[in-house]
Amino acid sequence: MSLDTVGLALAGTARRTRRRTRPSALVVASIALLGIVAVASVLAPVITPYAPDATDILNSSAGPTSEHLLGTDGTGRDTLSRLLIGAQLSLLAPLAVAVITTAVGALLGLAAARIGGAFDMIVSRAMDIVFAFPTLLLALLAVAVFGPGLTAPICALALGYIPFVGRIVRSAAIQEQAKPYVGSHAVMGFSELAITVRHIFPNIAPVLLAQATLTFGYAMLDIAALSYLGLGVQPPAADWGSMIAQSQSAVLQGNLWSILFPGMAVILTVLAVNVLGESLSDRFSLASRSAR
């Protein structure tokens, strides 16, 4: 092969890759927003202008001013500071749900697909049963049994979302293991476990990543809802859901500002996560289709 043809071939590959991997402006904006939120939440203790629970009673229920950039809530606490500190819990709790769900769901889905038979049937039916439960209801049930706080709802939400991940991983693994390379590796002497870990899992990992992202978005909404109901994060700790709840009285007094910012924070973050998750899942289902 002459150098020219190699160059041409490489150029062709590069062109194809670029066209396929270039994300839309919306996706880029979502990633940027999530990046900012993540960095802000990590740096929160350093960059907050006020202590999150310091009250400025003279300036309570105020709109944005030069002193309080995003205004204050009904007890005069700085909204920006609480928003930044609240981001930590608001992101960590759904992250925990996404991690547990993805790990357990992937394990169950892979095991069901690879072992098959009665094991597959039992796991699949069990997932169907959990699937039939509204996830938020499951979380409410957990709070009712174990009391308010984040641990119980995190576990309950993780349990509730496992079937979503498990089913998708199972069907992706079943599709993957039908490919002849799985048989050719068995003929080469590799154990089923080695084939699963080294070949099937890495090939379905992108699907899992997309699903984990979507789970994060759902869990974030659910936890915000629980906190809003006063069942999740307990005062004086703050997350965005509890900030919305605590701002209700301010809204009744005609101050929309204190509910606007935490509300926007939840909406924009969940939206960004969902845009990213949908784009990932579209991309990878498309990739697997075109590779066939």
């Binding site: 490919k179 048989g183 050719s184 080469m188």
Partner: peptide, 18 residues
């Protein structure tokens, strides 16, 4: 595996694409 190996009809899918 040391005794007998197999070549499949479909050469594309007999490799892990990654």
């Amino acid at each position: 595996a040391r005794l007998v190996q197999m070549i499949f009809q479909d050469p594309f899918h007999s490799f892990d694409p990654r």
